[in-house]
C-alpha cells in the first residue's frame, strides 16, 4: 500500500424508479464523512479547537435522469473560510436522448488548530459541511 496515494473507492447502486411526483435521494449514501459532526453544539467554547486531521474529501455521483423527470432546482453550495472549503454542486450533460447528472461534494479541511475565539467561524464552516452532507437531489415529474 502506498501511503502517499489517495484512498479511492467506487460503488454502484440502484434505486427504484420514483412513483411520486417529486422524489429526493441522498447521492452519497453510506459515505464516510470527512469530519465528525456532533448533533448538538454548546453555545460557548473555552478550549482551543483542534482537528485530528486535515484533508480533502471528494465524492462524485453520476446517474442518468429517469425519463419523464427533471432535476429540481438546487442552488449550488460553494463556501469558504479559514477552516476550509465546502462545495455541493449538480450539473447535467446531454448524451443523445439521455441526460447525465453529475453531483459533486467536496470538503477541504485546511486548518487544524485555532483558538477558542474562532468558535463562531468554526461553527459556520461546520454548518456548511452539515448542509453539504444533508443535501439531496430532487427529481420532479415533467408536467
Amino acid at each position: 500500500m502506498n501511503p502517499d496515494a489517495n484512498i479511492e473507492w467506487e460503488a454502484e447502486g440502484l434505486l427504484d424508479r420514483p412513483t411520486s411526483s417529486t422524489f429526493q435521494f441522498d447521492p452519497f449514501p453510506g459515505m464516510q464523512r470527512a469530519l465528525y459532526l456532533p448533533s448538538a453544539w454548546p453555545e460557548k467554547r473555552t478550549e482551543p479547537i483542534v482537528l485530528t486531521i486535515l484533508g480533502i474529501q471528494l465524492g462524485t455521483c453520476e446517474f442518468t435522469l429517469p425519463k419523464g423527470f427533471v432535476l429540481g432546482q438546487k442552488t449550488p453550495l460553494i463556501r469558504q473560510n479559514s477552516f476550509g472549503k465546502v462545495a455541493f454542486t449538480v450539473s447535467t450533460t446531454a448524451k443523445g436522448e439521455e441526460t447525465l447528472v453529475k453531483v459533486v461534494i467536496r470538503v477541504d479541511v485546511l486548518r487544524g488548530f485555532a483558538p477558542a475565539e474562532a468558535y463562531d467561524e468554526f461553527r459556520t464552516f461546520m454548518g456548511w459541511v452539515d448542509e453539504a452532507y444533508h443535501s439531496k437531489v430532487t427529481l420532479e415529474k415533467n408536467s
Binding site: 459532526l37 456532533p38 448533533s39 448538538a40 453544539w41 453555545e43 461553527r123 459556520t124 461546520m126 454548518g127 459541511v129 452539515d130 448542509e131
Partner: peptide, 16 residues
C-alpha cells in the same frame, strides 16, 4: 438538549 436534537429536532452547527 442533545437527546431532543437527535430525536426529531435536527439542528445544524449554527442553530441554537
Amino acid at each position: 438538549r442533545q437527546w431532543v436534537i437527535q430525536h426529531g429536532f435536527r439542528l445544524p452547527p449554527t442553530g441554537t
